[in-house]
């Protein structure tokens, strides 16, 4: 279980997150929505340990993620709208490199296997630099899954993707959900992934406006527009 207590992040005088409290159960798929600048990316960066909070704590199964960051990093995968890949390496080389950092057994086989699942095996030896945005995003997902994490954070994984790219990633997310992975994803593509979610968290100006398990698209859209227009 992920437990977030009084999480705050300030950049100078700007408060990006203002004391968030929430919990996510094992195997839950939670969508984070919010207008631009609401603090979605900051929240996911903090949860994935690449950004330190100004105040507050995050626990995964009662383990403080900052005091035990090594242990936690081996349990989480993070996909951002930036792929976090080396452009002058091929997809296979990237994955073998990252698999090595995670001490994955037989990194080459594991990398090939995951590239096949993501339908990238035919172009596994091409440089990432030459990939389309959608292909880079699939390799980024492969990078995040190479060590078989039980928690996956995704920060706008559909941004800039075409229909095919969105569909491939959505199918993979469905499989991961079925495998019982805990998934926290921020997105603006509500219609593409509302069906996947167990719960929706709406962030506005660094605060939780509401968190609901009612994933009815019409209800959510109506409430979202109401709250966002009030706050603007």
């Amino acid at each position: 279980m992920i437990s977030v207590n009084n999480l705050q992040k300030t950049y100078g005088v700007i408060s990006a997150l203002k004391g968030l409290h929430f919990e996510i159960s094992k195997g839950e798929f939670v969508l984070i929505f919010g207008p631009n600048g609401a603090g979605k990316s900051t929240l996911l960066k903090i949860l994935s340990t690449i950004l330190a909070p100004t105040e507050g704590e995050v626990y995964i199964d009662d383990i403080n993620i900052y005091k035990n960051s090594h242990e936690i990093r081996s349990r989480i995968g993070f996909v951002s709208h930036e792929p976090f890949l080396y452009e002058n390496l091929s997809a296979l080389e990237n994955l073998v490199f990252f698999a090595g950092l995670y001490n994955v057994d037989n990194p080459l086989n594991k990398a090939k296997e995951i590239l096949e699942t993501l339908q990238l095996d035919a172009r596994e030896n091409e440089l990432v630099r030459n990939y389309s945005r959608g292909m880079k995003q699939r390799v980024a997902l492969a990078r995040a899954l190479i060590h078989e994490p039980d928690i996956l954070y995704l920060d706008e994984p559909f941004s800039g993707l075409d229909l095919l790219g969105t569909s491939i990633i959505t199918n993979i997310l469905k499989n991961l959900k079925a495998q019982g992975k805990t998934i926290l994803m921020s997105t603006h593509s509500f219609d593409d992934c509302a069906d996947l979610a167990h719960r929706i968290l709406l962030l506005i100006n660094g605060e939780i406006a509401f968190m609901t398990s009612d994933v009815n698209k019409d209800h959510f859209k109506q409430k979202y527009l109401e709250l966002v227009s009030i706050n603007n």
Binding site: S48, T49, I50, S69, H70, E71, R73, S74, I76, F78, S80, E82, P83, F84, L85, Y86, E87, N88, F98, L101, Y102, V128, K136, R143
Partner: peptide, 18 residues
């Protein structure tokens, strides 16, 4: 600059390495 390209450095920082 190579690390900053596509924010590859963050992939490195996400890994459980000292």
């Amino acid at each position: 600059s190579l690390e900053k390209e596509s924010e590859a450095i963050k992939g490195l920082l996400l890994a459980p390495v000292d």
